[in-house]
């Protein structure tokens, strides 16, 4: 069965500030979808709401028709930056913890990934470089067998070699009939692996299109197309 994620009329405020307004989105099939938008656009909030980590939004979110947040959580593997882990923990200890908490953790797949990514299981979290830490996060996230994978900015601030390795791991180990959402504010590095893009702008979904349709219709690269949505007038860099 192919996965369907449905978000309907989602509204979310924090401290009286609108974060997301009237977000409706249907993602179906076995795709890799890029969730794009400027810093602070609400990408992470949307991911947290989908994952059931953030609460108190109005509207509905369902995965394969399941709306209950606890059920949804079990269908989603959400990349966790490991902020809650003590920094003196070893990779092997954190992996053991994941294995215990998540019954869908596939150890064989995990082992393949860490050997491909050349992770040393005896290393402590505090000793990992940013790129290595992200490789570890990706291994943990993809080792779970779920319907939906949410990767929150897996490429921010890491070197190009690590990035390539991570992209390769995604292609190799994403289960065929799962849906993957990757958020990023640089699109060029992941454009070739995206089926579709969703752009969050002005608190809502501004665009939802297939990547090859954009290339075909506009003759533009995904990055140029994405930038053209902003224009020069309201650039606030």
């Amino acid at each position: 069965m192919t996965t369907t994620l449905k978000v309907e009329q989602l509204n979310y405020r924090r401290n009286l500030k609108k974060i997301l307004t009237n977000v409706s989105l249907t993602l179906s099939g076995n795709k890799i979808v890029g969730l794009l938008g400027e810093n602070g656009a609400g990408k992470t909030t949307l991911m947290r709401l989908i994952a059931g980590v953030a609460k108190n939004a109005s509207g509905t979110i369902s995965i394969n028709d399941e709306t209950d947040p606890a059920t949804r959580k079990s269908l989603i593997s959400y990349s966790n930056p490991l902020g809650g882990m003590a920094s003196n923990k070893r990779i092997s200890e954190i992996k053991a913890f994941y294995q215990q908490v998540y019954p869908d953790f596939d150890e064989q797949k995990y082992d393949q990934m860490i050997s491909f990514l050349k992770l040393d299981e005896t290393q402590r979290l505090s000793a990992l470089s940013k790129g290595t830490r992200e490789k570890f996060v990706i291994s943990l996230t993809l080792a779970r067998q779920t319907s939906v994978y949410l990767l929150d900015e897996p490429f921010s601030g890491i070197d190009s070699m690590s990035r390539k390795k991570i992209i390769n791991s995604i292609i190799q180990w994403k289960p065929v009939d799962s849906l993957m959402i990757i958020s990023d504010h640089y699109v060029s590095e992941i454009a070739p692996i995206l089926d579709e893009i969703v752009v969050i702008k002005d608190n809502t979904v501004a665009v939802h299109k297939a990547a090859d349709v954009i290339r075909e219709e506009s003759g533009q690269s995904i990055e140029d197309y994405y930038e053209s949505l902003y224009g020069e007038a309201d650039s606030n860099d």
């Binding site: 076995n30 795709k31 890799i32 390539k164 992209i167 390769n168 292609i171 190799q172 994403k174 065929v176 070739p192 692996i193 995206l194 089926d195 090859d212």
Partner: peptide, 17 residues
Amino acid sequence: VRQLAVSLTVNVNTVQR
């Protein structure tokens, strides 16, 4: 298909298309 996708660094669906 997956091997082609990895060697070209593209999405499996795109190779299939």
